[in-house]
Structures are given as structure tokens and as C-alpha cells.
């Protein structure tokens, strides 16, 4: 089951979301800021990728949050499987861009 899902090709938006997590974003709103995607796109992608174990999420430490006077947030990090899928998708994307002449070798 896991195998088939890892080999699933990512959509462009999924690639962007995973890439921004790989770049160090941890919150949904940071992903929105960085990718320019809407909340209606980003959060479902996060959920889906989480269900497929490409992303893992955890709650922020409650004490840290209280120290800042707000409720604990949900952190997202990319998993190893996510990294593999991202890598494959990135290479695929680059190959396509090259084929389209968007990127010159």
C-alpha cells in the first residue's frame, strides 16, 4: 500500500508545498506566503500528504506556546518518504522544463 503511494507522481502544487517544507517552512501560513498558494489549496495538500506519510505533523510544546501567550500550533515537517517523492518529482519537473526549453542545459 505504502509503495504505490510513494510512487504516485506529485501534482505541481504538492511539489511546491513539499519543497517549501523542505526549505524549512513549518506552518501552513508560511507555506502560503512562500508559494503564493491559497489556504484552500495548501491545507488540504498538507492533510493529504500527511495521510500518505509524506509529511508529519506535531503539536508545538504547550509551555513554549504559553510563554508566547498563544495556543500551541501545528508544525509540519517533511518525512523521508516525502523527500524521496519530492526528489523524484523535482527531477521529473526539471526534465520536462528542459524538454520544453524553459531551462537551457
Amino acid at each position: 500500500m505504502g509503495d504505490t503511494r510513494e510512487q504516485r507522481t506529485l501534482s505541481y502544487n504538492e511539489l511546491l508545498v513539499l519543497q517549501s517544507l523542505a526549505e524549512g517552512c513549518r506552518y501552513g501560513f508560511e507555506v502560503m506566503s512562500l508559494t503564493g498558494l491559497s489556504g484552500g489549496t495548501v491545507y488540504p495538500i498538507l492533510r493529504r500528504c500527511e495521510a500518505q506519510r509524506l509529511v508529519s505533523s506535531s503539536m508545538e510544546d504547550a509551555d513554549d506556546a504559553h510563554a508566547e501567550g498563544r495556543p500551541p500550533r501545528r508544525f509540519h515537517t517533511i518525512t523521508a518518504a516525502g523527500q524521496r517523492a519530492l526528489g523524484a518529482a523535482r527531477e521529473d519537473l526539471i526534465a520536462r522544463h528542459r524538454a520544453l526549453g524553459l531551462i537551457r542545459p
Binding site: G28, F29, M32, S33, S38, G39, G40, Y43, P44
Partner: peptide, 18 residues
């Protein structure tokens, strides 16, 4: 630039549905 509250709430809605 940080998305506004409205954009985030839209995200919350999609998040809940998903």
C-alpha cells in the same frame, strides 16, 4: 508578506473539509 486572517480562515475551512 503574511496572509491575512481571512485567507487563513479560508484555509481552515478547506482543512476541515479535507
Amino acid at each position: 508578506p503574511v496572509p491575512g486572517e481571512l485567507a487563513l480562515l479560508r484555509g481552515a475551512w478547506s482543512d476541515a473539509l479535507a
